[in-house]
Amino acid sequence: MKLNLKVWRQKDRNSQGQLVDYTLDHLNPHMSFLEMMDTLNETLILNGEEPVEFDHDCREGICGQCGMMINGIAHGPLENTTTCQLHLRSFQDNETIFIEPFRSAAFPVKRDLRVDRSAFDRIISSGGFVSTNTGQAPDAHSLPISHQLTEEAFDAAACIGCGACVATCKNGSAALFTSAKINHLVLLPQGKEERQERVINMVQQMDAEAFGHCSNTEACEVECPQGISVLNIARMNYEYNRALITRK
């Protein structure tokens, strides 16, 4: 099959970028989207041009490193899928595809399609953990946790930190990412001890990183590769309100 690509090219953080047209022919529809990008780069290199920089690593949808805006949709047309899990069979022959980086003020473009998502790391660093040092743990069975609670916590913990929620949010809000971690930990008895400090610190850090407000459009849940529920955001609000009221 044949594809007409419009790929965002940008030299570095401070440069202006632009869309550049490329055409690829004789593509196999079973190819993954990133393999198509590999093919493009191979062609560019052999033509003496610089290849397109894009984020990717595990290519099985779990590391969270890949992420592109494909035809204006985070991770492309399929719901709950990462870019690396997308295959060309999801596109038409001779289709024109826009490929842009995830955009948000908190995710500056580093080059071409690569963006800086270290803001997420700083949010985790501000409170997304249980304060337990190595070697302090009691026996795992000393703390029964119901099956249902574990599953609920897991649903939130499944976040891969790809940033699609921010890229797809019209407000550039990181509420889904932040709330997923807050809820993963607050649902479990281990994490309850620090619930007040955690939610306050993480929300403050989220704001400091220039993310926008959540206005509950719920687009993030639709595009999230792991289908993290927007109810996490409601629960973060609950935790935050609770902390403001009960904090000493």
Partner: peptide
């Protein structure tokens, strides 16, 4: 033996039985 304890303390949501045990 210690690793499982450590991971649970960190909040790793290991699969559990309905009674709440791992």
């Amino acid at each position: 033996l210690n690793l499982i304890d450590q991971a649970v303390a960190q909040g790793v949501p290991f699969g559990r039985e309905y009674g709440g045990y791992l």
